[in-house]
Every structure is written in structure tokens, then in C-alpha cells.
Amino acid sequence: MNKQAKILAVIVTYNPEIGHLKSFLEELSKQIDLVLIYDNNSLNFKDIASIQFSQNVIIHSSPINKGLPTHYNAAIQYGLENGFDNLLILDQDSTFDKHFLDEYRKHLDEDFFCLVPFLVHNNNDYEEKYPTKTKNTCDYVKRSINSGTLIYLHKLPNDIRFDEDLFIDCVDFDFFIQANKFRLKTLRINSAKLHISLGNISRIGPFFLYNYSPFRLEKQTRDRVIFLRKHPISAFSLWLFLFTIFCDTKAILFERERLRKIKAIVKGFKEGLFFRTSSRQHP
């Protein structure tokens, strides 16, 4: 077990629930060397700033909502420049079990690029229907979500960064595609459980609805189109394309604010289709 490894954590916030964020940071700051918070112009930033942070919590405020990748890359750069061994990415609304980081530390001396968590959905109905299943203590995986991903910074190639053409969706998928092309190993630690929320899940008949806001749907659609333009030929891209059609159809048919959501999906599709991708493309 490597107890000496310096771990930097990064959380990007946008209109977070203050009570949860406060308690989460209180617990996290006891287990991490430094926590970077990048706020994306939250409406409740004054409430965030009023939290009595520990000395190892630093908050940065952005005048605009920059999404996720820009801040993740800033955290990578900070970690590399300040002697950190690992970067742990977390969401503002995720929670982990008490021994989550202890389970990660058992593997910090091993030959991996990333450690990722065992995901448990906060919605019991959804978790019962779509649980993550395994009988192993650890599993090699090709991808995971952003939250809970721990990157071994000393194994991060200069050509791998988060794609700043994306805003919030597919950021994780694109990152792991880059890692897989370099044949870098990702290990899921099944004893490190991360509790996550997907939108505001409800159920109608056999269907689960995510009930994302029109803004989130717009950015989600935009990012998925950009991702599919960048990675057009793969089994995962085909799955993502079909899954997106399925989810958008459910949102249009069954969720509230249908007209606004139709407009958001159409707008996001146009933005993604005509977006001029940056000249700097990672392998």
C-alpha cells in the first residue's frame, strides 16, 4: 500500500446543493492532500464561497460556464507542476463509501494508468434494474465515468488530455478511447463504491426517464454529435447513437417541457454538426 503518494482532487461545480457539498468537502479534505474546486459561474457562488473550507481546499471561480474538460486539464497541469502523483476526479453530487480511498491506495504501487470505482446508482429502482455486476475483487475495464477516476499523473502521455471541444457529455468516453489507443490499463476497484445520480430519474411503465433540463439536453446532444464525428466507426459509437435516439424519444414523448426539450435537442444537434473542431486533436 502506498500511503505516501500525493493525491490531488478536482471538483467542477455548477449550482451545487450547498449542504451536500459542504459535508462532502469536509470528509474529502481529511483524506486528500489538496482539493481544487473550479466553479462554472454558479448562481449560488456566494453560498459556495461562504463555506469555511479547510486549508487544503482551493476554489477558483470562472466568469462563464466552461464545462468540464478545460478545468480537468487545468487540474492535470497543476498536479504535474506541483509534484502530485495522482489526480482524482469527482462530481459535486457523488458520494463514496468511508473506505473508498483506502481501497484505491492499496493499488497505487501497481502498473496502471487509471483506477475507477464500482458504480452504485442512488435511485434504488434504477440500480435494481441496471446494476453493475461482478464476482471479482477487481476488473480490467475499457472506460468509466469521470467521477471517481484516479489518474496516475506520471504515466499520463503528453498527447492525452481531455478534449476541450466537448462541454460535459462524452468527456470521459473520449479520454478513455485515447488511453486505450496507447494500450494503457484501467482497473476497476470493486470494493471502492461510488454512489452516483443520473439526472432526476423517474419511471413510466418499463421506461426510465432521466428528466434532464433543456440546457443539459442541448449540451448533451451537441457533445454526442461531436464525439460521433470524431469517432464514427466503432461498436461503442453505434451503441451511443442508438442509445441517444432512444433517450431523446423518451424525453420528447413522456417528460415535461416537451417543446423546450425538442428545441434544445434540435439546437444541440445543429451545434454539434456544424461545430469547427480544434486543430489540436489527440491520437
Rank of each mutant, 00 (worst) to 15 (best):
I51V: 09
E255K: 09
V57H: 02
L253G: 07
E271M: 14
I32Q: 08
V12R: 08
D33I: 00
S144T: 11
A74F: 01
N123K: 13
S62I: 04
R105Y: 10
L90H: 01
I11V: 08
F236W: 14
I245G: 13
S278E: 10
S54W: 00
K133R: 12
P69G: 06
I160P: 08
K6M: 08
S29A: 08
A74G: 00
H231M: 09
M1Q: 05
C170P: 02
I59A: 06
I233M: 13
P157Q: 12
E17Y: 09
D91C: 00
F112R: 11
I89H: 02
Q55C: 04
A74W: 00
E27G: 05
Q4K: 13
E257M: 06
S50H: 11
P69A: 06
A49F: 07
R188P: 08
L166T: 09
L36E: 02
L253V: 13
H20L: 09
R256V: 07
H195L: 01
S234A: 12
S278A: 13
R161C: 10
K30Q: 13
A179Y: 03
N15R: 07
L228V: 13
F112V: 13
T149R: 06
F113W: 11
N56R: 05
T186G: 08
S94A: 09
F45T: 10
G205M: 04
S61D: 04
F45D: 04
C247W: 04
F112D: 06
S42P: 10
Y152Q: 14
I11A: 03
H71S: 10
Q92W: 01
F53Q: 07
N136A: 15
N211R: 02
V171P: 06
S62W: 00
R224E: 09
A49S: 14
S237L: 10
N180L: 12
I168G: 11
I7C: 08
N180A: 14
D163N: 15
E164M: 06
S278F: 02
Y212C: 06
Y72G: 00
D109A: 12
R143P: 00
F167K: 11
K98F: 04
L153H: 09
L166I: 09
R143Q: 15
S279W: 00
A251Y: 01
N122V: 05
Y126I: 07
A9P: 00
D223V: 05
Q220G: 14
A179V: 05
N190S: 15
P206D: 15
I76R: 01
I58W: 00
D169A: 10
S62F: 01
E110V: 01
K270I: 15
E164K: 05
F162W: 07
A192E: 04
D174V: 08
Y130L: 10
W239H: 14
K219C: 07
V35R: 03
K267W: 09
L242H: 04
L21T: 08
G272E: 07
Q31K: 14
C247V: 12
T13Y: 00
Q178C: 13
N65W: 11
R258P: 01
G79M: 01
T186D: 08
H99G: 01
K250D: 02
E255R: 12
T186P: 05
I89L: 12
K230F: 03
A179Q: 10
L90G: 02
W239M: 08
K106N: 08
